[in-house]
Design a protein around this nucleic acid. Structure first.
Lengths: 330, 330
DNA sequence: TTGTATGCGTTATCAT
DNA sequence: ATGATAACGCATACAA
């Protein structure tokens, strides 16, 4: 910037004013400066600007895995919402609880104006760690009642609706496929919704119908579905806590010669973009991804712009709707 | 840092040395400093550190869309390769040619140590814009022979193999579904490979079998496949330039009552993680994602660490293999 | 409309 | 083993 100023015969401050489109710059001066900038191939140093302004114009989005349809969909919503407010978003993969905590603490400060953390590995016990002084919004389901703003999925209610849909389609032996059940994680909440739906329908709760798997992906879904059939388990419906799991289950059932929805009906959760094109197309819960994203960005910006003492955190639960497709005979 | 130094009764420099694990700090001093840091809840300001060091330890990955199975897979490889070298990666969505150019120029400088750009919208005409002084590696297929390092897919050869596979499975009227064909983009290269395979097999090249679609996603694939059947087009095989397209095509054919692979065989390109679980599972080309990612990160790091005058750029083409699954008859 | 002085929080260099 | 000093490149506040 000094060089540009010298070359244009002005002070560095004037160059700065030109770069930042300040109003009070004479057109001729602006032209001179722009010319010098072009000639010297000048680029602003964002690191310096960030240090000086104390703002970066970038918010971070930390997700457990980048290669997942669900988090991809989530990112799209966040990016759109942030863009509308003039912010860029930068995505990072956390992969482990360790990294999630790391994303919160030391190193990321001042790199982003704020952080949207979609936590998967953190537990209620880590809630204390969320007590950071910079803007953070948690998107997801753990750490309910933690010390930060929180936008959650309508896990319980939506799961109840999903399971009820299977009941209404005539299923009587409804299995659930979920992840490890601990504290208030998505799997535990969705399991509760499932149980309520069975209870509502006066169906017995058979523990053998509760299938917990290690990862919520297609591979696990397919593997477990094959095991379920081989073990002779009697079931006519499966509520899967993610669409990926559901597609895997359908695949696994197909491998075992079982037709969906004729013999077994399957419903998922997430309304991932592929689910519409899968064969059979997947009935599922459509969470209001964009609404939740919008809300999360809103909350974050509020925190970023708030200067006074930190106000009490707020919790939100998103909307949802039931999408009926072929996998439940729809 | 000043506050910590004062509280610990040392100089800021010593605090810095403690933070950065420098060897020459007496244990007792280190303890004092750590205690003061904890007491004051001190966090380093990364913006300041970046400015001072001229390095961030972060590389950027700019992709056209974050919600795509292919770019998700790519990101996984890049993140793994970067992590092995002690770098973090930050993903940004470019979405438009404009943003791709933007990712290169002004604003991102000094935000990242280097940029891996997976370009989709840029054309050969934009090659000049790639002449930037900071480290950039292009991952993808446009801008061949541009002024930067480049890691490319084995588009032509792999497509030839894919189309030949259909021939070997007895297809005689083989369609290709690709995107807009212009200059040397993936679609044009893959189309060339397809044409060569037909020629190799002495099959006529019917222009009606070349189906260009707007987007390379499932929706377009399904829509176009339905149109192809409705229009009475005669074909017994389809080579789709992406797996997403292929899954969409299979879905569209199913809607029209056409069975894959019995009546029509379909092969994709990318070996996206879902393709194994789709029904029918998808035959496809498996590019060496991880090898390409590794190479791209290598090249980038070389540029980052190189201090002297810029050396000539280098081009690489990745490996690939043919994956045969149900959609071409197993 | 333009320029001067100062500070953002850290690290490198060199001295002690 | 520790500290003083000077950048890093920009923006803010205020003066001219």
């Amino acid at each position: 910037m000094q060089d540009v100023a010298k070359a244009a015969g002005v002070s560095p401050m004037t160059v700065s004013n030109v770069i930042n489109d300040h109003p009070n710059v004479r057109p001729s001066t602006r032209a001179k400066v722009l010319e010098a900038m072009a000639r010297l191939d000048y680029r602003v140093n964002v690191a310096a600007r960030n240090l000086s302004k104390g703002r970066t114009g970038v918010i971070g989005l930390a997700v457990p895995e980048v290669n997942s349809a669900y988090y991809g969909r989530l990112a799209v919503g966040i990016i759109a919402a942030a863009e509308r407010r003039g912010l860029r978003v930068s995505i990072e993969q956390t992969a482990s609880r360790e990294n999630e905590l790391d994303a919160l603490s030391l190193s990321r400060n001042h790199q982003y104006d704020g952080l949207i953390l979609s936590a998967a590995g953190m537990s209620q016990a880590d809630a204390e760690r969320l007590k950071v002084e910079h803007p953070v919004v948690v998107l997801g389901d753990r750490i309910f009642g933690g010390p930060v703003d929180h936008v959650a999925m309508p896990n319980l209610e939506a799961s109840r609706v999903a399971a009820r849909h299977l009941v209404e389609r005539g299923c009587r032996r409804i299995a659930i496929m979920c992840g490890a059940v601990e504290e208030v994680n998505p799997s535990s909440l969705r399991l509760t919704g499932y149980r309520q739906a069975l209870e509502d329908a006066d169906l017995p709760a058979d523990p053998g119908l509760i299938q917990q798997v290690g990862r919520l992906d297609m591979r696990e879904g397919a593997r477990r579905a094959r095991e379920m059939t081989q073990s002779g388990l009697d079931f006519d419906g499966v509520f899967c806590v993610t669409d990926s799991l559901a597609m895997g289950v359908i695949r696994g059932l197909a491998d075992a010669g079982i037709r969906v929805p004729d013999q077994v009906k399957v419903i998922g959760f997430d309304n991932v973009s592929d689910s519409e094109f899968f064969i059979p197309s997947l009935s599922t819960i459509d969470p209001d991804h964009d609404g939740m994203a919008e809300r999360a960005v809103d909350l974050l910006i509020r925190r970023i712009e708030q200067t006074g003492p930190s106000t009490r955190h707020r919790d939100f639960i998103g909307d949802f709707s039931l999408v009926i497709r072929e996998s439940t005979g729809g």
